[in-house]
Amino acid sequence: MRCLLLLSLSGLLAACASAPDAPEPERDPRDKLEPFNRAMWELNYEILDPNILRPATVGYMAVVPSPARRGVDNFLSNLREPDSFVNAGLQAKPASMAISAGRFLVNSTVGVLGLFDVATKIGLHERREDFGQTLAVWGVGEGSFLMVPARGPSTVRDTTGDLVDALYSPLGLFNTPLTITRYVLSGLTQREKAMSMEHLLEDSFDPYAFVREAYLQNRLFEIHDGNPPEQDDYDDSYLDEFF
């Protein structure tokens, strides 16, 4: 019996050794760091989110009433208007500059330090601009897609832009405790907004690839102010594999 078992194992190993290697799946050329990014995806969305961020967000939603949470979101958004103003100027968009300046002035005064979004109600709709978009307008390539630890999807260009925005943003004037509080509240607010999208990840074949594509397409939309150029070779049939 032992001899037969050894012979069977030997035959199985020989068959495995002689079998041709399965071809590796073709990688997205925009994701040159995919092995690292997938590892960070596991950290962010398989460990940190279900064990820390999502439970904290659920608790935040249970304790803080919806109007108060909306006020926090408005306050944080208002503090980013100077960033949009500067980047609109760097992109030569005077209309966007005027809107960002008007929104900041109206919401910081009539809107009680930004707690109420009065500007939108009077027709000054937000036009978010950041330095990542500025770099794109200047012709800087986006670099590889990047899954940032404890944060989420980005690109090399957008991550660089975030660092530059922090240099002149009024948010940089916060001391350490206030900065930590801002990051926590911002994370909770953004996670709350993502609650309605959870079913898309759960139903997708490859959640990582789905998030990557959604992020890159959304950034293209933002860079071109809602009018991205048509791509002749674009084929949305690949989306079928995600659902």
Rank of each mutant, 00 (worst) to 15 (best):
R2S: 09
L6K: 09
S8Y: 09
L12H: 07
L12F: 08
A14N: 08
C16Y: 07
E24K: 11
E26H: 11
R27Y: 02
D28H: 08
P29I: 15
R30G: 06
P35N: 09
I47E: 07
P50R: 14
R54T: 11
A56K: 03
V58I: 12
V58K: 13
M61H: 07
P65Q: 04
R69V: 01
D73S: 12
N78G: 04
P82K: 06
P82W: 04
D83V: 14
S84G: 01
V86R: 06
N87V: 00
G89D: 00
A95W: 11
A98D: 02
I99H: 04
A101K: 05
L105K: 01
N107V: 05
S108K: 00
S108L: 06
S108A: 11
T109K: 10
V112F: 15
G114E: 02
A119T: 01
G123F: 01
G123T: 00
F131I: 06
F131T: 12
E142H: 10
L146M: 14
V148A: 08
A150E: 05
A150T: 10
G152K: 03
P153Y: 02
S154K: 00
R157V: 02
D158I: 03
D158L: 03
G161K: 05
L163W: 15
L167V: 14
Y168F: 15
Y168T: 11
S169W: 04
P170V: 06
P177Y: 07
L178E: 14
I180W: 14
Y183Q: 12
L185Q: 07
L188Q: 03
L200D: 08
L201G: 08
L201F: 15
A209I: 13
F210A: 12
N218V: 08
H224F: 11
D225M: 12
Q231K: 10
D233H: 10
D233N: 10
D236I: 12
S237F: 09
S237N: 13
